[in-house]
């Protein structure tokens, strides 16, 4: 028998994607939530100003941060509801592998939502956006998603045994990802806002990368103990 971490991670990821394809409970709910959020911003801001471009970055990332909370909140739900957690925890899977698989699944859910929501937000809120800007925004999405997913998977796992987890998770997660929202909104604004400020864009991107690496290291150092009793 050979239980390599790579094989285990692939199995966990395939499981998450199979569950999502069958139940459509996470990505679809996140997508609908993000669309409704965008529409609310459109009515609240878009219809009251001639040019919402300066607010676009903030609107996009405020919506996506709340959407991410919804997605992170669904983490471990099938395991808890279907009581599979004990089976996973008695399997010889390093806890870090469990977290990495969760993080990758979260990144995929977030990217799926963003593929629909970000272009829509640009149409709603940005005047004269260039097609090439989408590529730069995609880089921001990937970096911010990795950062959110690492923190989200860590906090979701910390609160999995908590009785008040539905309350605890947003209370812990939202303040933790404020730096990500600020940087991602800043980078998006630097691309979509008036006058492309590429220096500023790259500074924010580096910050997002550093944030993801730092929290990745924190997760690496702590996760083995998080899911253990």
């Amino acid at each position: 028998m050979s239980a390599s971490p790579l094989r285990q991670m692939r199995a966990l990821l395939v499981k998450d994607l199979r569950l999502e394809l069958r139940t459509r409970e996470t990505a679809v709910a996140m997508g609908l939530f993000a669309l409704v959020g965008m529409m609310i911003f459109q009515f609240a801001i878009g219809t009251r100003t001639d040019d919402a471009t300066p607010f676009a970055g903030g609107i996009i990332w405020a919506t996506l941060a709340l959407t991410a909370v919804l997605g992170v909140g669904r983490t471990w739900v099938p395991e808890r509801e279907q009581r599979v957690l004990d089976a996973l925890l008695t399997a010889p899977v390093p806890r870090l592998v469990l977290m990495l698989a969760r993080s990758v699944a979260l990144v995929l859910y977030l990217l799926t939502v963003q593929v629909v929501v970000v272009p829509m937000a640009i149409v709603f809120f940005v005047r004269d956006a260039a097609f090439s800007d989408l590529g730069l925004v995609a880089v921001v999405c990937v970096l911010a998603d990795v950062a959110i997913a690492v923190v989200g998977a860590l906090l979701a796992s910390m609160s999995v045994f908590s009785r008040a987890r539905e309350l605890l998770l947003p209370v812990l997660l939202l303040p933790s990802i404020i730096p990500v929202v600020i940087a991602a909104a800043g980078a998006t604004h630097a691309v979509l806002g008036p006058g492309n400020a590429l220096d500023e864009y790259w500074r924010y991107c580096v910050f997002l990368g550093v944030y993801a690496v730092v929290f990745g290291l924190v997760a690496f150092a702590t996760f083995d103990h998080v899911l253990d009793d």
Partner: peptide, 24 residues
Amino acid sequence: DPLVYLDLTAWQNLELFGDLFGVD
């Protein structure tokens, strides 16, 4: 409880746990 995913098939569940335990 059986400790398996209700929304996966029997085969998919065993495939998952087989991979986690490194079953050849």
